[in-house]
């Protein structure tokens, strides 16, 4: 009773590649403007330019995990495995972006605060999310039955995602005794154009990557769930 995972024409690979290319171009343009055209900031000097990649990465990481959460819920409600494929793709993308985000945050913190990690609530929550969703990817890898894998990882994603605001508030209260450091998001940019360009750049890049990664997952699923060939056809 294995449904064809490729049924219901998915968007062709062309769409994925096009999104990827368009995103890359936007990102290149936005970064160029952010690095060389935008003026220096009043307090941060030139270091603030890190924000032009850091903030877009942050928005898109959260978006990726949110899409993963939505896909997990959709899978549990509908049982359609295309949602499981999207779920896998979104979580993987989110993990990559979250990991990158933490490194960018450390590179930001060093020149501005003198330490590599300043326990900023947003960044700390991202680090927790990074580990939580890596655990979910590990869960997927260790469960071999595709139905169990899809159901269990969907459940785990829902629990992890619901936990995110709780983690954020607990870290914020925990850290509130210390001086609230300004993170890149609170620095005002003299130019918003590179910020928005890069935000859309990463968005399209991410959309392309999730599209392609979903197709990979669907191809693997149809192989896993395909009924065995009858003897006569061999």
């Amino acid at each position: 009773m294995a449904p064809s995972v490729l049924a219901g024409r998915p968007s062709g690979p062309g769409a994925g590649y096009a999104l990827l290319a368009f995103g890359a171009v936007l990102l290149a343009v936005g970064s160029y403007i952010g690095l060389f055209v935008a003026p220096s900031e009043s307090f941060m000097g030139d270091v603030y330019r890190i924000m032009y990649v850091h903030v877009p990465t942050a928005w898109n990481a959260l978006l990726a995990f949110t899409f993963g959460f939505g896909s997990a819920v959709a899978f549990l409600l509908k049982g359609d495995f295309k949602w499981d494929a999207r779920h896998e793709a979104a979580v993987e993308m989110g993990v990559v972006l979250a990991g990158l985000l933490c490194c960018q945050g450390a590179i930001w913190a060093r020149p501005t605060w003198g330490v590599w990690w300043d326990w900023d609530p947003r960044l700390t929550t991202t680090a927790v999310m990074f580990f939580a969703f890596i655990g979910i990817l590990a869960l997927r890898r260790f469960v071999e039955d595709p139905v169990k894998r899809a159901t269990w990882s969907a459940v785990a994603t829902i629990i992890a995602y619901v936990d995110v605001p709780i983690v954020y508030f607990s870290v914020r209260w925990w850290n509130s005794l210390h001086q609230m450091q300004s993170s890149p998001e609170t620095v005002s940019a003299p130019f918003l154009i590179p910020l928005r360009t890069n935000a859309f750049g990463i968005l399209f890049l991410m959309a392309g990557l999730i599209t392609l990664r979903t197709r990979i997952a669907r191809l693997r699923l149809s192989q896993e769930m395909a009924p065995p060939l009858p003897e006569a056809a061999r």
Binding site: L20, A24, L27, S31, L35, S42, F43, M44, G45, D46, V47, R49, I50, V53, H54, T57, V96, G99, L100, C103, Q104, I107, W108, R110, P111, T112, I202, L205, L209
Partner: peptide, 24 residues
């Protein structure tokens, strides 16, 4: 005002470029 710090900016952009292109 913070002066310099271009090595950090470069590091951040290069890292982002490397990670995103490798994953892509």
């Amino acid at each position: 005002v913070l002066s310099g710090g271009w090595e950090f900016v470069t590091a951040a952009y290069v890292l982002s470029l490397v990670v995103l292109s490798t994953y892509s």
